[in-house]
């Protein structure tokens, strides 16, 4: 198939960016979206032009590195699919595809389609862990957890930290990401000791990083490649309220 691509090009953090238009031939439907990008880059390099920079690594939908805003949707037209798992059979011959980076003040653009998501790391550093040093654990089966709870914790822990929730949110809120991590630990017995401090510290870091507030539009859930449920945000709000009203350190 033959495609027209409109891609955001920006040399570095400071430079002004703009859309460039490219046409690409010989795309087949079995190709993944990133393989289509590889072919575009091959063409650009043969013309002695700079390749389009984009983040990607595992290409199996799990590392969370790929991050393209395709035709107005994070990770493109298919639901519950990362950009790397999107295939060209989702497009038609003659299509024009618009490709942008994640757009959010808390995710500054580094180059072209590559953004800086280190704010996510900072949120986790603020409390996204159980403080258990190596060697101090009890036998694994000494902590029984009923299957339903364990499954719910796993549902939340499946978040890949790609940032699609932020890119899709009109407020650029990272609440879905934050709530997935808070829920994962709040549900488990291992997470209880630091439950209140965790949610307060992580929420504060979220706000300081420049992410917006949640107004429950549900765009994050609709665009999440791992189908993380918005009910985690409800749990986050409950956890936050509980901690804010009863935390002994306050």
């Amino acid at each position: 198939m033959k495609l027209t691509l409109k891609i955001w090009r920006q040399k570095n953090r400071q430079a002004a960016g703009k859309f460039e238009t490219y046409s690409l031939d010989n795309v087949t439907e079995d190709m993944s979206f990133l393989e289509m990008m590889d072919i575009l880059n091959l063409q650009l390099l043969h013309d002695k032009r700079d390749a389009v920079a984009f983040d990607h690594d595992c290409r199996e939908g799990i590392c969370g590195m790929c991050s393209m805003y395709i035709n107005g949707r994070a990770h493109g037209p298919e639901n519950a699919t990362t950009t790397c798992q999107l295939h060209m059979r989702s497009f038609k011959d003659g299509d024009t595809i618009v490709i942008e980076p994640w757009r959010a003040a808390a995710f500054p653009i580094i180059k072209d389609l590559v953004v800086d998501r280190s704010a996510f790391d900072r949120i986790v550093q603020a409390g996204g862990y159980v403080s258990v040093s190596t060697g101090s654990a009890v036998d694994a089966n000494a902590i029984p957890i009923d299957k339903t709870t364990a499954d719910k914790a796993m549902d939340a822990a499946e978040c890949i930290g790609c940032g699609a929730c932020v890119a899709s949110c009109k407020n650029s809120s990272a609440m879905l990401f934050l709530s997935a991590k808070v829920s994962h630990f709040a549900l488990l017995p291992q997470g209880q000791a630091e439950r209140k401090r965790r949610v307060l510290d992580m929420m504060r870091t979220h706000d300081e990083a420049g992410f917006g507030s949640c107004t429950n539009t549900g765009a994050c859930e609709a665009e999440c490649p791992k189908s993380i449920s918005i009910s985690n945000i409800a749990r986050l709000n409950r956890e936050y309220l509980l901690a804010a009203l009863s935390n002994d350190t306050m």
Binding site: V130, A150, A153
Partner: peptide
Amino acid sequence: DQCVAQGVPFA
């Protein structure tokens, strides 16, 4: 043991 203590949600 270590992974479970960290909250790794094994099956």
